[in-house]
Design a protein around this nucleic acid. Structure first.
Lengths: 167, 167
DNA sequence: ATAAATGCAAAGGGTTTGCAAAGGC
DNA sequence: GCCTTTGCAAACCCTTTGCATTTAT
């Protein structure tokens, strides 16, 4: 199962990888082969990968890194702002290339696990109003809609596998 | 730190506890002292308690129960429909008395951890439309707004403790 | 009396950490 | 060469499970 390739704009990926190198340099952090490999995996896909999936993809590329290194590097990527950590209540975390997107919501297919993103201004405004109505000053919010994606809705009889193709 | 008391309508709590006894009877499950004590704690508060907090409150009431029993009973309560399980991405789960509320959103104070609930019909409809716009059939959704509650907004200089009073 | 729940402790999954060895800069 | 990272394994947290004992009915 190869991750990456032309899923995400090749140019954008290259730019993100360069930004990560710059971040490492600016913070006097060694640019090790493992760090760059892990960054390439996470920044090179549109998917929301778990730590375990990142490690598996590294292995698939013949670039293996220890579990601890994977977690530590994901934390560095998170601090750099290039990667965002997500928790969909699955019992583990997922990591997503930030791509400079300010904020977006998630649609999660309950059959195949596919994650789709979207952005909606009205929702943005509405959450501010809702918070205000209850005496809160809104800082951020998080919406996840669970449902059936187009594909799974069609083949309702035989639900798609939990690990979908990369579309 | 005493949980319960008059936070939730005393009558409603009594009704829920009776409903739990009925559930146990109907399913041929023994109504043990531990089960009733745990039910009393969770059903008797409006707060969203973690398993550990439930155990602590039991101890505070001199009614102690083993960790495994707490988890097992929380699962029984969940299956009975009287309690709902929540995951706020804190690394553990919280349990909330269902109170027959169909669905609601959460406001989470980032300073003191207080959880406030609210319901909004427009949001309900909007999520259906949003899902539809992306080819999904909406099943359910989950919105958490993070922000500062009224109290923490006021005393901004000295953030309130992570474990707030039961107000 | 019987079948189930309890409690303890051990196992479990995901994640973090301590420390000797390896490797950037 | 100095300082950081790596990798392994142990530790960690929350939760679940196995099993002998206790308990509700």
């Amino acid at each position: 199962m190869a991750v990456g390739g032309d899923e995400a704009g090749a140019a954008a990926v290259a730019a993100d990888e360069a930004a990560f190198r710059a971040y490492l340099r600016d913070h006097n952090l060694p640019a090790t082969a493992q760090r760059l490999a892990i960054a390439a995996v996470v920044l090179g896909t549109d998917r929301h990968l778990s730590a375990e999936e990142v490690a598996a993809e590294l292995r698939a590329r013949g670039q293996q890194a220890g579990t601890a290194t994977v977690y530590r590097t994901l934390e560095v990527l998170r601090r750099s702002g290039l990667v965002v950590e997500r928790d969909f209540g699955e019992g583990f975390k997922r990591f997503e290339a930030a791509r400079g997107v300010p904020h977006h919501e998630h649609l999660l297919c309950t059959a195949c696990g596919r994650v789709t993103e979207f952005r909606d201004e009205r929702l943005e405004r509405m959450t501010t109003l809702l918070a205000d109505a209850h005496g809160f000053v809104r800082q951020r919010h998080r919406l996840v809609i669970h449902g059936l994606c187009r594909d799974c809705r069609a083949g309702a009889g035989a639900p798609a596998p939990r690990r979908p193709s990369l579309s």
